[in-house]
Amino acid sequence: KLATQLLVDLAEGCHTHHFNSLLDIIEKVMARSLSPPPELEERDVAAYSASLEDVKTAVLGLLVILQTKLYTLPASHATRVYEMLVSHIQLHYKHSYTLPIASSIRLQAFDFLLLLRADSLHRLGLPNKDGVVRFSPYCVCDYMEPERGSEKKTSGPLSPPTGPPGPAPAGPAVRLGSVPYSLLFRVLLQCLKQESDWKVLKLVLGRLPESLRYKVLIFTSPCSVDQLCSALCSMLSGPKTLERLRGAPEGFSRTDLHLAVVPVLTALISYHNYLDKTKQREMVYCLEQGLIHRCASQCVVALSICSVEMPDIIIKALPVLVVKLTHISATASMAVPLLEFLSTLARLPHLYRNFAAEQYASVFAISLPYTNPSKFNQYIVCLAHHVIAMWFIRCRLPFRKDFVPFITKGLRSNVLLSFDDTPEKDSFRARSTSLNERPKSLRIARPPKQGLNNSPPVKEFKESSAAEAFRCRSISVSEHVVRSRIQTSLTSASLGSADENSVAQADDSLKN
């Protein structure tokens, strides 16, 4: 292990032709098999893994070397290190390495390699500790012929580059190093199909959405987006994914797998022009299946994007999809995704031109529960009313008269009656009930004795009459309010007539 670390330190600071010789020695160290011998017992696995620490030291050392060589000349050094790393990870899946030390190597290698970024000039870069990406002036992410390196360097940008540029090249004859992302992409596909350690798979799935944002990485080298989509959909639809995973937390289920895969599918929607129609349908189907899991909100957001990006695919699945959405409970976490999906859909009339009455009724059935102001915040309630109004205007004229009683009944049950079921009123009724029952229970537990009763009969009569009056008032709060309003209006009217009579009498006395 110490000798391997010494080789790594020497290679990191070497800029001459001896660098390749040092890498040859490190490569021989990495070539050791990580498969346990067949006769190895389970209690000896930890000791055997400790004997392979030099392999881990070599791989982690290459990660440090690549981070240094990416910004220094010659660029061919970075290319050689990158290829060695990718080849080593491929061996893991070729020979099915399952030892804990092998999983640790893959975890740290993917953690580093999935941080690679590219700008519009195809320059590769890595983020620093502050998250700012520094791009290399010597390494690009696409394949290029050595003699055409300078031509590639002087080509115009596709868009303004992001991030601070690296140091300027030493001279005009500098050759750019090619670090094609397709090599890593193929290893990522192998990981999605064969990885057995949940920690490694979770890391890859968590980092892929951010990497897919940099389309330069994908399009400048032959990366098959179709295969990526197929691998992701197979993970969700195939039963073998959960069987092969180990190291998963207790209670791990298909729902947890959906939570990890759906963000990658959402990021892949922007590549729909490069996906086969069959793959697009598979993607939409997987998102529909996710509606029954805890990732339902993410799936609804993804389907909203699909309705804009892939209208030809979503239009066929939309009638059944809208009916499925009615089975989702009206909760605060689902309110905004569902209502925004319906609001977006209302502005795309070509998608729902074939809707029948059942689909329009489903839209109103989804939106009406969110009009309850005692359960949802003001934004959700306003958005629900907006969706109902928009869809009522957009639905066909023959359907409107049939939906009017349905909508008014839903609004009455969710908006008007919600004020009668407020917690304050319920607590008031509970308190009044307890007050009504309390005197009775006290009389049963403690019967009054005439000799020891010091309270006069008049006081008892007053208290009983007050309790009886309170019971009468607490029967119905709404009736009490109505009666008080009527009494107030009658009182004001009587006072007004009394004032008029007094004024008339005063005038008569003055005349006399």
Rank of each mutant, 00 (worst) to 15 (best):
R80E: 02
K240H: 12
G149T: 13
G125F: 02
K129N: 10
W198E: 01
S150R: 12
T98W: 07
I65H: 01
H92K: 00
T68M: 04
G163S: 12
D130E: 09
I89N: 00
P160G: 12
L63E: 12
E210C: 06
E145A: 07
P127I: 06
S237Y: 05
R106Y: 00
L188W: 02
R80G: 01
L66R: 00
L183R: 12
Y71C: 03
Q190I: 07
A170T: 15
S221H: 03
S120Y: 12
H95R: 12
L62G: 03
P249V: 04
A75N: 05
S76F: 06
A78H: 02
L62Y: 01
K240T: 13
F135V: 04
K202E: 08
S120V: 08
T241F: 10
P137K: 09
P100I: 01
Y143E: 10
G61K: 02
S120E: 13
P209K: 12
I65C: 04
Y82I: 04
V225C: 06
L62N: 02
T162G: 12
Y82L: 04
E243P: 04
S224C: 05
G206R: 12
S103P: 04
I101M: 07
V81F: 01
V216P: 06
M144I: 13
K153G: 11
G149Y: 13
R207P: 00
S49K: 03
A173E: 08
S51F: 04
K215P: 08
L217W: 04
L121E: 13
L189N: 03
T72E: 09
R246D: 07
A75L: 04
L184T: 08
S155T: 13
M144R: 08
G206N: 11
L217C: 05
Y138S: 07
P74H: 03
R106C: 00
L245M: 11
H77Y: 04
Q90V: 08
L66S: 01
C223F: 02
D119Y: 00
T79V: 10
Y93L: 00
S104L: 11
V216N: 08
T220M: 03
M235W: 03
S159L: 11
V225I: 08
L99D: 06
H77I: 01
E210L: 08
E195G: 00
C229Q: 03
G251H: 08
T220L: 02
T241W: 07
L208H: 00
S87Y: 07
H95Y: 08
L121P: 02
C223P: 02
S150N: 10
L242D: 03
E195A: 00
H88A: 02
P165N: 09
S104D: 13
E147C: 11
N128W: 09
N128A: 08
Y93V: 00
I89L: 11
A102H: 03
R244D: 04
L212S: 00
L217K: 03
D130H: 09
P74K: 02
Y214L: 04
T72K: 08
L176K: 14
A58D: 01
P137V: 03
S136H: 01
E53K: 04
I89A: 01
T98D: 13
P137H: 11
L126E: 01
P209G: 09
K199Q: 15
Q227D: 12
M235F: 07
K94N: 12
T162S: 12
L201Q: 01
L126K: 04
S51N: 09
K69T: 02
K215G: 03
Q67P: 04
L176S: 09
